[in-house]
């Protein structure tokens, strides 16, 4: 499993005022699998994603990314794992306006100590893989929404990422562009064995996933998609 979340609980605040964002959620994502998380606002979808990405610390439970439990690693180790293994895609792209597309994509590698020239090369490869290598030297403000989201996806897959986490990645895009982004995420999982988690409120987009899970009040209440095959079941019971 690339991502293995066990009995994940996240509570904000204490006592009477405590808000239970997640209550004992289990979720496993295999290599090459794309899982969509749906649910009404406030159901805990985004909290699940931020905990999976090491951006938020769970109250209880385990979050294993590629076998490493984020809840027991130190802050620096989590940050390193996040830079090397986890890619994040947000609704509002989160690109740095002062950097070109290639520089935005290269940034996580450079932060991780890769030399600039090598990082730039990896960045161009990633841009090529999302189909916009010709935009490498362009600034985010000179691109369309769809192009910017492709840059954000390139940044999320650059290097040797194993886990791709996407929070409403199509929220700011028109339906055709949104669909192209989904196709891209889907292909990425299929062809590169990356595990993906997609948070969306849009059923049409969730349907691109292998599995759709439904959260309500911090609890998984439903699942659609093929049942895990026998091998996966055996692995889980181990």
């Amino acid at each position: 499993m690339i991502l293995d979340i066990r009995k994940l609980t996240r509570t904000h605040g204490q006592g009477e005022q405590a808000v239970h964002a997640l209550r004992g959620v289990d979720l496993a994502v295999a290599p090459g699998e794309l899982v969509a998380v749906m649910g009404p606002s406030g159901s805990g979808k985004s909290t699940l994603l931020t905990c999976a990405g090491g951006l938020d610390q769970p109250t209880a439970g385990e979050v294993l990314v590629d076998g490493n439990d984020l809840t027991t690693l130190g802050r620096n180790a989590v940050a390193a794992l996040r830079r090397r293994r986890i890619g994040y895609v947000f609704q509002d792209f989160n690109l740095i306006p002062a950097l070109t597309a290639a520089e935005n994509v290269a940034l996580p590698l450079e932060l991780d100590g890769t030399r600039s020239r090598a990082a730039y090369k990896h960045a161009v490869t990633a841009l090529q893989e999302v189909g916009i290598e010709e935009l490498a030297d362009r600034f985010p403000d000179d691109m369309s929404g769809g192009q910017r989201q492709r840059v954000a996806i390139a940044r999320a897959i650059v290097g040797e990422r194993r886990l791709l986490l996407a929070d409403e990645p199509t929220g700011a895009l028109d339906s055709d562009t949104g669909e192209a982004v989904l196709r891209l995420l889907r292909d990425r999982c299929d062809q590169h064995g990356i595990g993906g988690v997609l948070v969306t409120h849009d059923a049409r987009h969730a349907a691109w996933a292998d599995r759709v899970v439904y959260l309500r009040d911090g609890v998984l209440v439903g699942q659609a998609g093929p049942l895990p095959d026998a091998d996966a079941l055996l692995q889980e019971s181990r």
Binding site: R183, A203, A206, A207, V212, V221, A224, G225
Partner: peptide, 20 residues
């Protein structure tokens, strides 16, 4: 409602697969 949602979601996934 929930059972129906997951059942319809499954059809939607199948349709999306066919479209792909």
């Amino acid at each position: 409602v929930q059972r129906q949602r997951m059942s319809t979601m499954q059809s939607l996934q199948e349709l999306t697969r066919q479209k792909r």
